Amino acid sequence: MARAGVTVLWGPTAGDARTAAHTALLRGAALLTGEPADAFRLTYEPGGRPRLAGAAAPPHVSISHGRGVWAVALGTTGPVGVDVEAVRPVPALRMAGRWLDAAAADWLARVPPAARPAAFLWLWTQKEAIGKARGRGLRGGGLGRPVPVPERWPPTPARGGLPALRPLADDPGIFCAALLADSGRHVLALASAAPTTVELRGRFGPGGADPADLRRGRGQAPEGRPRHAR
């Protein structure tokens, strides 16, 4: 695996997404460092930010798991945040009026109705990722942060992974990006507290294993609010 500033691993799972994410994080650290996965241990800071314990552990990590999907980010250049959501029917305009700034809500209202759930989640996952990168979670660091809306919907696909991370207008120390993944079935967002290069790998690469297999040694939120996890 290339040593980018941030490596993002993600994929769907038929098993427990939380367990899959934790397993993927340990496996990702092993792939990055060449150390065995059992050389690392997942811990949490008092505020809830995840950490990997171990002499060679990447210094910055983030975890997300949702409805049958997981994502992890491992970084070397600064704090990171990752978030992933399965695209599904949501009351996008009602939720936008409650959780998004006026400019973003107005943009969403102009998106064709059938595309609004994905467009809302495209914005929401970035807020989640920003809160994680800032180390204060959604309410403490991401909910009030406006994120840039795309010039067109759906956004132009990025070749080879995430589009370039862009600084926030009101906080140039945080950089973020999002993409529609898996033929539009999922939305994946990343935020970083430093400008950096990103390597994106779904299921540990083409034909890769679900973390449920790796674990065996073979290589819902309150109504009106999306599910989220640190």
Results as ranks from 00 to 15, higher is better:
Met1Ala: 14
Ala2Met: 09
Ala2Val: 09
Arg3Ser: 15
Gly5His: 10
Trp10Gln: 12
Trp10Ala: 15
Gly11Met: 02
Pro12Ser: 14
Pro12Thr: 14
Asp16Gly: 14
Thr23Cys: 12
Leu25Ala: 10
Leu26Trp: 09
Glu35Pro: 01
Ala37Lys: 04
Gly48Pro: 03
Ala55His: 11
Ala56Ser: 09
Ala56Met: 06
Ile63Thr: 03
Ser64Met: 00
Ser64Glu: 03
Gly66Val: 06
Arg67Gly: 13
Ala71Gln: 07
Ala71Phe: 03
Val72Pro: 05
Leu74Thr: 09
Pro79Asn: 13
Pro79Gln: 11
Pro91Arg: 13
Ala92Met: 11
Leu93Phe: 10
Arg94Leu: 15
Ala96Asp: 08
Ala102Thr: 12
Ala103Pro: 10
Ala109Trp: 00
Pro112Ser: 09
Pro113Asp: 14
Pro113Lys: 03
Arg116Gln: 15
Ala118Ser: 02
Leu121Asp: 00
Thr125Lys: 03
Gln126Asp: 06
Lys127Pro: 04
Gly131Thr: 04
Gly135Ser: 05
Gly135Ala: 05
Leu143Ser: 09
Arg145Tyr: 08
Trp153Ala: 00
Pro155Asp: 00
Thr156Leu: 06
Ala158Asn: 02
Arg159Glu: 14
Gly160Asp: 06
Gly160Ala: 08
Leu162Asn: 02
Ala164Cys: 04
Leu165Lys: 01
Leu165Ser: 00
Leu168Pro: 00
Asp170Glu: 11
Gly173Leu: 05
Ile174Pro: 07
Leu179Met: 13
Leu179Arg: 14
Leu180Ala: 04
Ala181His: 12
Asp182Pro: 04
Ser183Phe: 04
Gly184Thr: 00
Arg185Glu: 13
Leu188Gly: 01
Ala189Trp: 00
Ala189Glu: 02
Thr196Trp: 04
Phe204Ser: 05
Gly205Lys: 08
Gly205Trp: 09
Ala209Phe: 05
Asp210Leu: 03
Leu214Ile: 15
Gly217Met: 02
Gly219Asn: 10
Ala221Lys: 06
Ala221Tyr: 07
Ala221Cys: 11
Glu223Pro: 12
Gly224Glu: 07
Gly224Arg: 00
Pro226Ser: 08
Pro226Leu: 02
Ala229Ile: 08
